[in-house]
């Protein structure tokens, strides 16, 4: 491992440690804010593994949140274990397995599509799965499913889920960072830039996309399970939500599509903005998010990190006495 990689791992570990420690001191309200940030950051990272690395924009990623949530709820209702470790492991394991299976089944046909076609096909996948969850009595999506309270009595539920989701988002970032540094990551970047050229250079584009889709779906499913466990009660409408798909995209976009920090920064900013500052206007949440998308596309196409980078370059370029940017 290079010195730089070691450094980033150390910094990441320190950040996670710091956030975990914060969990012991924060008020219940702030714990809930943190939890929301982690959940949406984790989903955004899950989306980013396909959407950011390979620029295959899924507009139906909520399907994995929904499938993960339902898998967790249904298994935990069927097998009633004692002890939170076993319960969480079962729920999360079932969620990840179900999402991975779904991803594996639809990957080959759907990833043959490019651009708009992939985007809208994912929208259709989400629509169909949501309908199935409502329509088939086994899933009980229209009545709703109750999940057991998995938090141990000795820990406040907010704190418990704060730590759980912190753990999950750490895992998500670690997986994404590993992919980005691995051969697979370079294959995905090549696909993002020019899929035909990538293929002619020997990149097995189909396999790369399928692997990314699997990782992406599984991580999103994991976040879906935690989302459901934290809610305690789910229906089709609460977990198969177009708004969730949108949030994943918007978080990545607001932060910037250039690096893994993008979805993280975006999740922090957007959660604080929509849930905390505009918390009193919850019914306008969708409209606000929609307007932010429009604003970002027009004003900051490279996201907040892109803006920051540009500003930084301008400052530095000014000091050096000349524009560094050849454009």
């Amino acid at each position: 491992m290079s010195a730089r990689a070691l450094m980033s791992v150390a910094l990441g570990a320190a950040a996670v440690g710091g956030l975990a420690w914060l969990g012991t001191v924060l008020s219940p309200f702030h714990l809930r804010v943190g939890l929301s940030i982690f959940l949406s950051a984790g989903m955004a990272i899950g989306w980013y593994i396909l959407g950011g690395f390979a620029r295959y924009y899924s507009f139906g990623h909520t399907v994995f949140v929904g499938v993960g949530a339902f898998a967790a709820a249904l298994t935990l209702q069927t097998w009633r274990f004692d002890g939170w470790v076993l319960q969480v492991a079962t729920g999360v394991g079932a969620a990840m397995a179900a999402s991975a299976v779904l991803a594996a089944v639809i990957a080959l046909p759907i990833l043959r599509l490019r651009g708009h076609y992939f985007t809208i096909a994912m929208l259709a996948v989400a629509l169909v799965c949501a309908e199935a969850a409502s329509a088939f009595p086994v899933f009980r999506g229209s009545i709703g499913l109750t999940l057991p309270d998995v938090a141990p009595p000795s820990v406040r539920p907010e704190r418990f889920f704060y730590w759980m989701s912190l753990g999950a988002v750490t895992l998500a970032v670690a997986v994404a960072a590993l992919i980005a540094r691995a051969r697979l990551g370079y294959g995905l970047f090549a696909i993002r830039e020019d899929e035909d050229a990538a293929q002619m250079l020997g990149v097995p584009t189909t396999r790369c996309k399928v692997l990314a889709f699997l990782a992406s779906g599984t991580i999103t499913g994991l976040m879906g399970a935690l989302y459901a466990l934290n809610l305690g009660y789910i229906t089709t409408d609460s977990v198969f939500r177009g708004a969730l798909s949108l949030d994943m995209i918007v978080n990545s976009l607001v932060g910037g599509m250039g690096s893994l920090f993008g979805p993280l920064v975006g999740a922090v900013v957007m959660t604080l903005l929509t849930k905390v500052m505009l918390g009193d206007f919850l019914e306008y949440h969708l409209a606000i998010t929609g307007l932010i998308v429009v604003a970002i596309v027009f004003l900051a196409p490279d996201g907040l990190l892109g803006l920051a980078e540009k500003a930084w370059r301008r400052v530095r370029g000014g000091n050096a006495g000349g524009g560094a940017d050849p454009r």
Binding site: R183, Y186, G187, F189, A190, R192, E193, D194, A197, A198, L201, G202, V203, P204
Partner: peptide, 17 residues
């Protein structure tokens, strides 16, 4: 070219695959 990647990373994709 893979426009968004550095020259080195462009060449690296060739080497990796």
């Amino acid at each position: 070219p893979f426009r968004g990647l550095s020259v080195r990373d462009n060449v690296k994709v060739g080497a990796l695959y």
